[in-house]
Nucleic acid binder design. Structure first.
Lengths: 252, 252
DNA sequence: CTTGACCTTCACGTTACGTTACACTTTATG
DNA sequence: CATAAAGTGTAACGTAACGTGAAGGTCAAG
């Protein structure tokens, strides 16, 4: 049985443009061209098309399909497993995105409808979510999952009072920072007070404090553009100053 | 704090091309253009970019992001829910694809195992049946039911490896036969090697080996047209030569 | 013989940028 | 202060997998 292009297209449920394209990229050539230049397909091509569409269904890109169809059935087998892994990773990513939206929505809902109590709780969640989105990857990489999870857990466990205290401390740090910088000396008393407040502030979210971790974080502030931008809002070189103050404080 | 394009790009972890593109599609315009035509961004633009990147993370396309950012926060809320639904559907589709690959792989594995296990088993059965049909009567007559039944039982009990070895031996015999014939001497070393391999080959299906039975089989090869035709495919007189070689080997 | 359904080959549009190419401006260095 | 290096600008092509015409040839039916 022979088919013209649109017969085959109908049979396969695709467009004839698609078949022309597959011809063009040498994925599926017609069995012959008739005297008027029409593409004619035979049974072999139908079978091949079946395979192609199967792989396409699985979201394999056409380049890969071309490769796969030139490989031994053993390699096709492993290519399939390979592809499945990609899909699984994609799904994991989707899981995370869906969860993030859940959190964001919960947060927004909280803002619109909820009481102060719940608003506070939702805010903490969004703080956690935001931290995760912004810095999660680097921090997890640098300090490990345990550190991050514990930090999140601690944030979740915070009371309203704790949070208020933390926020107050954060503001104090921002008040202190320009004053400390004005001294020009990271070992000055005011700079050391700044570093101490920063340590206190940290312990609100850090499950355990260590000098090394504190210094490491200070270095990361400087190294990471986003942290840097956060502190440099106060003044140019503020991040570096904070780092130096912390290092002096810790090593004191 | 003001930022040039690549400062902002670094800050946000994206390329400056991306920022130019966002300018082009009116997704994110710089706060102003300086005298040299450089794009300058301010705090407001940073905040907007944060939102944009958040939505982009969630795989919202830029066209939709533009729309969302022009909407009220209530509509943004429902747009987010809308998008989440799309993601959930995408995930469901991925679930199906992953399952399909699982099934396909299981199926192919099944086919492979079948072809190696079941097919082999089926092959052995047919070998036995064939033997029975072809030679059963004569052999049963000549060597008795017990011999035949034992032989069949042994065949049935063969492992894949046994079978592969038997097949290999059979091929070696067929390779060796013309070479042995070329010597013209059934007592030649190569002819004796041939006879020994034939003995080994026999022990795969014979429950017990005896010199008499081996010689008897050799005579039967010559006497029986079907055996004769089988070996004479190699060369004229091959069956007789094989018999002579076996007799010499056994009597040696 | 005409009409309409099919077929052909260009060739542009789509998304979200990456990647040159070329010209100009700012910053760093000797 | 001259020059080199780094940064910025616009313009334009490339990507994947086709969709969508446009312009023109082919085929079966009335």
């Amino acid at each position: 049985m022979e088919y013209t292009i649109s017969k085959l297209a109908k049979l396969a449920g695709i467009s004839s443009r698609t078949l022309r394209y597959y011809d063009e990229i040498n994925l599926l050539k017609p069995s012959r061209i008739n005297s008027s230049g029409y593409r004619i397909y035979g049974q072999k091509e139908i079978d091949r098309l079946q395979q192609i569409l199967f792989l396409r269904e699985l979201e394999v890109d056409l380049g890969t399909i071309i490769q796969i169809m030139n490989e031994s059935s053993f390699d096709q087998f492993s290519a399939l497993l390979d592809h499945q892994n990609k899909l699984i990773q994609k799904r994991a990513r989707l899981d995370k995105l869906i969860e993030t939206i859940d959190k964001t929505i919960a947060h927004q809902k909280g803002e619109i409808v909820m009481s102060n109590e719940e608003k506070f709780k939702a805010f903490k969640e969004s703080l956690i979510a935001e931290n995760e989105v912004k810095y999660g990857e680097e921090i997890r990489e640098k300090y490990g999952d345990k550190t991050v999870d514990e930090s999140n857990a601690k944030l979740r466990g915070m009371s309203k009072e704790d949070y208020a205290a933390m926020e107050k401390l954060g503001n104090e740090i921002f008040d202190l920072l320009p004053k400390a910088i004005a001294t020009g000396d990271p070992t000055s008393e005011i700079a050391q007070e700044l570093a101490e407040k920063h340590k206190e502030w940290l312990t609100f979210s850090w499950a355990s404090y260590s000098k090394e971790a504190h210094k490491g974080l200070a270095e990361m502030y400087v190294a990471d553009e986003r942290f840097k931008a956060y502190y440099d809002k106060v003044a140019k070189g503020a991040t570096e100053f904070l780092r130096d103050a912390i290092i002096n404080y810790v090593d004191k």
